[in-house]
Design a protein around this nucleic acid. Structure first.
Lengths: 326, 326
DNA sequence: TTGTAGGCGTTATCAA
DNA sequence: TTGATAACGCCTACAA
């Protein structure tokens, strides 16, 4: 059922039907009513493709994330959904699995008539090699991009980031203030920029106070390293840069019979559900993923409505949720 | 940069450029080469909208899920991604938040030129009121639908389901065989069809063997009920129909000082990461979400390639992963 | 108040 | 081997 079909049935021209359905003032009341009824009767639905081709807008946003199993990104998407939905945008979610090849392919395909703009958390590969032509490509085609969480410094786009460095810094400083003499950082995400920021926060806080103890490795190696560390040194506190490291620290400490927080404190990044259900319950740094998503989406919607807006850099502060390990 | 622009630059007609870029045999080698070079030079990318409008195909699939924070759906999406990607389909993921209104809106919008077909896990609301016009609407418009996990019986579409009833049934039978005298079912998802199936599996297994003990409520009430139950009766085993109920059972049993599996066995549905990190580690029923996603996507791709294919009903079997609570 | 015609960027048929 | 031309479904000056 197209405008043409409807026009034939109504015995009027295509443009009359088009105008009637779009409630144009040019069309008479009775004609409008008649055509609306007809459209309902035949369950007419406009072809979005044609409208988009014509208008050059698609009212859909591409959301590109490295992973979806990651609780953080899932949360962000919920926030994005919420505001984009309210602003009547559709959402295309694409997952890169940290592959740059996929990231490039997705951005290029979606740039060409599929979406009006992007919300992206850059993949690992892109973050290390800083290959950003595909983003510039989209940008030149007037598809604004808002980067969130995993951003690229050199790109002058809207950005929503988490103050990873700052929150870790303050957490560690606090630990120092509590008279913890040996605070270790364990990380299984040393290859991600987030991991780097968190480490920097730690290093900055520890500098001049005590010797830095940094364990960075993949999960398996990390376990070994952590065991050796705890065997040979007394550690007062562990700050874990990611969920896996946090869980690992908890496990190893428990296995050694350390009591928390008496013998050792542990603070890590981990989703609430997990933190609440391990024992002892884990003190975590909460990143407010939903807020990040909302903010990023809002920035994009604003930019889409007013393309002259200058790029902003928004920081969404994380908060510490104290549980049983501190 | 459109075909027209390129044609002007190359000094040939639009159709020549089109054919050259599509590698038509009609065009001479040198011309082809020249035009390809030009296209590369000017970084020409075809407008997908126009292609889609012309061909009537979009090479994209709409995936509709009630939630994304649910680990199960996240897993399914990973499986879907994998096969759809291999078959060169794009993916649009939409989240209904269990709202029928949203489900209807999404299906209608996407049906009109946006996607070639759907992969859907029906929302709660739809599952209770069985309002399925929107699915029929899509189907009539030649947008095939594959239902997964949350399906509608009355719909004659391809379906990929989990044998919830069967696996719970066999788990409970096994418990009976192990001489558990009082096996309880706890569920916080009694309003979902999955919850119903799981309960049926339990009831069937327990029938004629022992008295059924079924606790169904929202998480808060469930906690109270479970405490009262354990205070007044000795329960040998608990089967939890969902993650929250499983976590709850574990917590309450621990709080009562029960040792697992000596005093009580617990088996529940829960994601691996959680099951492995609680203590004692939880024995779970693993649903193989990735396989479900793969299978569903494959069915859709097949249907898209050969529309005469009859709908299938595929069951993906779950398996029990024994950990410390059994 | 209604209709005609051109165009959005492609593909594809048919003619040259 | 190449080029006009129509068509996909819609919107919108402009004309009637």
């Amino acid at each position: 059922m197209t405008l043409k079909d409807l026009a034939k049935i109504a015995g009027v021209s295509i443009s009359t039907v088009s105008k009637a359905l779009n409630n144009s003032a040019e069309i008479g009341q009775k004609t409008k009513a008649r055509i609306h009824d007809l459209a309902n009767l035949y369950n007419y639905q406009p072809n979005n493709l044609a409208i988009n081709l014509k208008t050059g807008k698609t009212k859909t946003i591409g959301v590109i994330v490295p992973s979806i199993q990651n609780n953080f990104f899932a949360k962000v998407i919920i926030g994005i959904e919420e505001v984009l939905n309210a602003s009547n945008y559709n959402i295309i979610i694409s997952i890169t699995n940290e592959s740059q090849e996929k990231e490039v392919a997705i951005v290029k395909t979606l740039s060409n008539g599929v979406v009006d703009g992007f919300l992206v958390a850059v993949g690992e590969e892109t973050q290390v090699n800083q290959h950003v032509e595909h983003f510039n490509y989209a940008n030149k085609r007037n598809k604004p991009i808002v980067l969130f969480d995993r951003v690229i410094k050199s790109l002058d786009f809207n950005k929503v980031i988490v103050d990873d460095k700052g929150i870790v810094n303050s957490v560690v400083k606090n630990l120092v203030k509590q008279d913890k003499k040996a605070i270790a950082l364990v990380s299984a995400i040393y290859n991600l920029s987030v991991g780097q920021s968190r480490k920097e926060g730690y290093l900055d806080a520890i500098k001049g106070q005590q010797e830095a103890i940094v364990l960075e490795a993949n999960v398996e190696d990390l376990e070994r390293e952590l065991k050796t560390l705890l065997d040979n040194t007394t550690v007062d506190a562990i700050v874990a840069a990611d969920e896996d490291a946090a869980l690992l620290a908890l496990r190893v400490a428990k296995a050694k019979g350390l009591s928390m927080p008496r013998d050792i404190s542990i603070i890590g990044f981990a989703p609430t559900k997990l933190a609440e259900n391990v024992s002892p319950q884990l003190t975590t740094i909460n990143q407010h993923g939903i807020d990040i998503g909302k903010k990023a989406a809002q920035l994009l919607v604003n930019k889409l409505e007013d393309s002259t807006l200058d790029p902003q850099r928004v920081i969404v502060n994380s908060t510490v949720v104290h549980r049983e390990t501190t």
